[in-house]
Design a binder for these strands. Structure first.
Lengths: 343, 343
DNA sequence: CCGCACGATGTAAACCTTTACATTCGGCTC
DNA sequence: GAGCCGAATGTAAAGGTTTACATCGTGCGG
């Protein structure tokens, strides 16, 4: 019954006593084959346990029904929920999802490009702001692609993200409403566009509140826990400290909170902190983190929907889709203390 | 130069003025082609930007050079480091890695099985204790496979994990050495073998210290934060509380700590807590968590090495590989308080 | 100088599909 | 009853490789 090698369409044809063409038609365009024949074929399929060889099919068709998702860091807490959105949407349209992990390694990116070149995937979802593949020439024949979070540098690739400016604005507005006037922004970055946008939201909020540019504190950072802690250390050599830290993401906020606690301060009594992303851990930090939620599942769903649309039309309807982020108020923000405890 | 469709071996052959067979040989068995010819071919390859169509190749060969990694939950903090180990080892041997995400959904597992059946992957790494695919018949023609963390139920599949018993033993021994006598184990589970083993280590440690079975407290749990919190709540209706919580994993420990803090207790002054896994967040919890480290990268490396060995020999040398876990001492354990603060 | 062996290369089949085109056959129109 | 049409099915090519086998030519031994 179950041979060592899987059943082919020919095995099915032999058992059903029809030609292989008929079997293929019975599977893909059942309305073109007589009902009685269809029945015979289906029985033969059941008997043999036949599943079509996707590789041969894709080779013939020149396209597959797999979507490749390339991410630099699978461990990113932002990743998994997006992935769920991507997968569900893909499945609903008969596509499967495979994940490629580049670890920010160009060589590895190139491997996935080969994979794509072999038309083993019909489309590409990119989690990285830059094309992971160096070769410009090869880039030319990329399949339909969609970026997530950030626009893909240098390719005419549409993307789905969140309105970072609006999200940051919501965070800073909350801090201002609580009475903060001296607010530091932690995590400025030249390379990551999303971070840049969040900084823009920060400035916009302060402008709207009439807080002069002079007193603003912007610290660099790459979004890691360590960068948050480091930024904090540098701030503490200043003479005038902020009363609140608006962090570019939750990891940075965690770093800041760890540093603050290490110095013996209590949050939010002594300092307020906000994050961005609402990663799963945010609600389990102490204190739980007030942050801006990315609608991750929705982003994934939208990105995949866009890609599938491109796969059928080849005309990307939109080139940029920004979803609305929401503020999640927890316990890391309070009104500023009257007087600051000195170090 | 860069046509819309990728260059084929025929294009290369035409430019190099040789046959396609020679091109193929120049690539895969260079020693069989004259040096001068090899040169011409290489130049032609460079000109055309040719990369072999992996799909056609695999179709012909009946095997691919991709390894499929199937995990129920990509978001599991244990996953990403393992993956790095897997990937690095695979790359070193010319294999690529693709990740399949089942979300514990049998249907999805079946899709990946089809993928395997089309010999789109040469081997399989399974992160789940049960075969994700229902059909027994299909299971018969699984490619060489290796499990990670837990033995795969019901298949003769070798696996690589950690010595859970020894790891748990190290944790409980530490607690005993600190003077604890009343130690609760949180996270017993019938379905997860690894958890069972950790409970066995717990008992072994108490036995060795001569602590009678009567006083042991074993709470059920599925390893989630919520299950830890829940177990704690149930414990607090008892009259004699433990002085330490030995948790089946770090998530559970986090849940316990959150619950303890919510009740106004301080860790480790009032209660000690240990975890298992040493997930990245463990060092950032407050207090930082004393836990048992899984050598994740090593596990991944070992699992892939075993799989590659099977791919060449087809005889799995070992059927079970257990690595040694280490205790990581941080700040969540201290000697038990003389007298417990009442609620 | 003939024959042989061997190294280098070419030819063609095979892997498993899909699908354009060809064929067959029954039923309908006139 | 002849011709035609359309439905159902079959035949065969194509997609890009790899490789067994065939071919070619060169160098060497006798």
């Amino acid at each position: 019954m179950s041979n060592s090698s899987p059943a082919t369409i020919e095995d099915v044809a032999r058992i059903a006593e029809v030609s292989i063409a008929t079997v293929s038609r019975a599977i893909h365009t059942p309305e073109k084959v007589a009902k009685s024949t269809r029945l015979k074929v289906n029985q033969a399929i059941a008997v043999t346990g036949y599943t079509t060889n996707a590789m041969a099919r894709s080779l013939r068709l020149g396209r597959s029904n797999m979507i490749l998702v390339v991410a630099p860091d699978i461990g990113d807490p932002n990743f998994s929920n997006i992935l769920v959105g991507l997968e569900n949407e893909a499945r609903a349209h008969g596509y499967g999802v495979l994940i490629g992990h580049t670890q920010n390694d160009a060589q590895r990116g190139l491997e996935y490009l080969k994979f794509l070149n072999s038309s083993q995937a019909a489309g590409l979802i990119l989690f990285t702001g830059i094309l992971p593949f160096g070769h410009q020439a090869m880039t030319a024949r990329l399949p339909p692609s969609v970026g997530v979070f950030e626009p893909v540098f240098n390719g005419g690739i549409p993307y789905v993200g969140v309105d970072d400016i609006e999200g940051a604005r919501k965070a800073v507005d909350l801090l201002i409403a609580e009475g903060h006037r001296k607010i530091a922004f932690v995590g400025d970055s030249r390379t990551r566009l999303a971070y840049n946008r969040r900084r823009m939201g920060y400035h916009a909020g302060l402008d709207a509140a009439g807080i002069p540019p002079g007193g603003r504190i912007v610290m660099e950072g790459d979004g890691t826990i360590e960068s948050g802690r480091l930024a904090l250390e540098q701030l503490f050599v200043r003479d005038d400290l902020p009363t609140a830290f608006m962090c570019v993401n939750d990891q940075t906020a965690l770093g800041v909170m760890i540093g603050l606690k290490a110095r013996g301060y209590e949050i939010p009594r002594d300092f307020s902190v906000t994050g961005f992303d609402d990663v799963p851990q945010a609600s389990f930090m102490t204190p739980s983190l007030t942050t801006v939620r990315q609608p991750r599942t929705a982003i994934g769903k939208r990105a995949m929907a866009l890609l599938l649309e491109m796969l059928s039309d080849a005309t990307p309807a939109e080139t940029e889709i920004l979803l609305r982020p929401d503020l999640v108020v927890r316990n890391s923000v309070a009104a500023p203390a009257r007087q600051r405890a000195t170090r």
